[in-house]
Amino acid sequence: MINPRTAPYAVLLLRLILGTMFLAHGLTKLLALTPAGTAHIFQMVGFPGFLAYPIIAFEIGAGVMLILGIYVPWVAAIACVQLLIASTVHFGNGWSFSNPKGGWEYPVFLSLSSLALALLGDGIFTLRRSSKL
């Protein structure tokens, strides 16, 4: 049975963890890899290079929105799809992310965590509650 007193705080924790992860990944693509470098990496793995730019914007924006609690279920649902698509690059590399070129368990875990957050809802301490999915 879910504890109704603590569940909103668990959602908040999941929201903060995923938001921080998205923010870190987006900022890494923007500042360390650079957008042009990220576009090149996307092309090397079979994605169109131009997708790097909206992905960088989405990851940074989604990170901020999740941390602040803005339309959480909707942002998390989109994040789930984005991460599942990103996971396809790693499917042939095996399970462990420590494998050469990275395995698929980390992006799939993040995708399913985003799905869980989308299903759970906004949680507590939100700036903008969303309508239910």
Rank of each mutant, 00 (worst) to 15 (best):
D122K: 07
T38F: 04
F58R: 12
A39W: 05
N3V: 06
F22V: 02
L16Q: 07
E105S: 09
V64N: 07
E105M: 13
Y106T: 02
R128K: 15
A79G: 10
T20A: 14
H40V: 07
T38E: 08
P35I: 13
R129K: 13
V81P: 06
M1A: 09
L66V: 10
V75T: 05
L18T: 00
P54N: 04
F50S: 13
T6K: 15
Y106V: 12
G63Y: 05
Y71Q: 08
M1F: 08
L14Q: 10
L51S: 15
L83R: 11
T38K: 15
M65T: 09
G103F: 01
G26F: 01
M65W: 05
V89H: 05
I85Q: 13
R5H: 08
G69F: 03
P48Q: 14
G92Q: 04
T6R: 12
G37R: 14
K101Q: 07
R129F: 05
I60W: 04
G46F: 00
F97M: 15
P8C: 12
A32E: 03
F22H: 05
C80K: 03
Q82S: 04
A36H: 12
N99I: 00
L110T: 01
A10Y: 09
L13F: 14
L119C: 06
G63C: 15
T28W: 02
L127V: 08
I60V: 10
I2D: 02
L84F: 07
L127I: 11
F50G: 11
F50M: 13
L127S: 12
M65N: 06
K101G: 09
N99G: 01
T28I: 07
V81I: 13
